[in-house]
């Protein structure tokens, strides 16, 4: 069990006089749960997602984003209590990833010249290595500097191949791609370069499946998807929860994807705060009545 806990989160655009966007967000997502985060444009949903992942465009002015990990996360290893809870806001984006936070982007970056298979294996190994460093402290760092460079000739490539080797990774990737009904040729394509909108979203779910996060925050993963791909993506998201036990925080405007990925909890944001929470029925109600109804309920005005 892991838990992502967002407490009284305030954030503004990271520039002088930057606009205040989050005005005290409170949310708790446990692993194995699916949460839907809904709200009108500009209410702060995407900003919440980006701040969780550590996007440099935002400055946190108050509040906390904590991740609580417990024994199950570590297998047989004993992990002292002080290493079971981490304040994500103090950490770099890659450290947050290492602790099990995944952000599925609304607009994933296109990286030319970097193949999917190379990228994903590098990312997975970087994540495993960073995780080790976080839990074992800085002791090992000095040794590593001494070993920088190649132990053998550079012609043979890096001696340090990472924890997951090429062959092992290719097998893993193949399995995950089959599950998402993705063509094998994807593995050799450049990361998101020239991908259709739908392919990009599928790719985000694939990356989550490979990196096995504790909590995946998926920002409008359903936008720009046709119905077939929506189902593939939904299957992938459900598998993240059912097979890997991930917690899902899914940001969406539409009921449509929630028909396939049924949320345990639905939250509605207005003006930088979560103003209403409920079960799956809430999103259905919202679909019928719109945000004016929420405003009326919360503020007593339309």
């Amino acid at each position: 069990m892991a838990q992502l806990e967002i407490k009284n989160l305030h954030a503004k655009v990271n520039e002088d006089g930057g606009e205040e966007i989050l005005n005290g967000v409170d949310l708790v997502v446990n692993s194995g749960e699916i949460h839907a985060l809904m709200g009108p444009n500009g209410s702060g949903k995407s900003t919440t997602a980006k701040v969780i992942a550590g996007h440099p465009a935002y400055e946190v002015t108050d509040g906390q984003v904590l991740i609580h990990l417990d024994d199950e996360e570590f297998g047989d290893e004993e992990v002292p209590e002080e290493l079971q809870t981490w304040e994500l806001l103090d950490l770099e984006p890659n450290e947050r990833a290492a602790l099990g936070v995944f952000l599925g982007f609304q607009y994933p970056a296109e990286i030319e010249g970097v193949t999917m298979v190379n990228f994903l294996r590098t990312a997975l190994n970087a994540k495993l290595e960073e995780r080790e460093e976080l839990f074992e402290g800085d002791e090992s760092e000095d040794d590593e500097d001494d070993e920088a460079g190649y132990e053998t000739s550079p012609m043979e490539g890096a001696a340090d191949e990472g924890e997951i080797g090429v062959a092992e990774f290719q097998q893993l990737l193949k399995e995950k791609m089959e599950q998402l009904d993705m063509d094998e040729a994807f593995a050799q394509r450049y990361l998101n370069a020239g991908f259709s909108g739908g392919e990009k979203k599928q790719n985000e779910v694939l990356q989550a499946a490979i990196l096995e996060p504790s909590v995946a925050v998926l920002d409008e993963i359903d936008s720009g998807l046709d119905i077939d791909r929506l189902q593939d993506v939904a299957t992938g998201i459900n598998a993240l929860r059912d097979e890997q036990g991930a917690g899902i925080l899914q940001i969406t405007h539409y009921q449509r994807i929630l028909d396939y990925v049924e949320p345990d909890h639905v939250h509605i944001m207005l003006d930088g705060e979560v103003v209403m929470s409920g079960d799956a029925d809430l999103s259905v109600k919202l679909e019928e009545k719109g945000y004016d109804w929420v405003r009326e309920e919360v503020y007593g005005t339309a």
Binding site: P56, E92, N94, R96, I111, A123, L124
Partner: peptide, 15 residues
């Protein structure tokens, strides 16, 4: 691109 760097960082690569 800052967005490109952030994207890769969010997957576990350091800066």
């Amino acid at each position: 691109g800052d967005e490109d760097v952030f994207y890769l960082q969010s997957r576990g690569l350091d800066d």
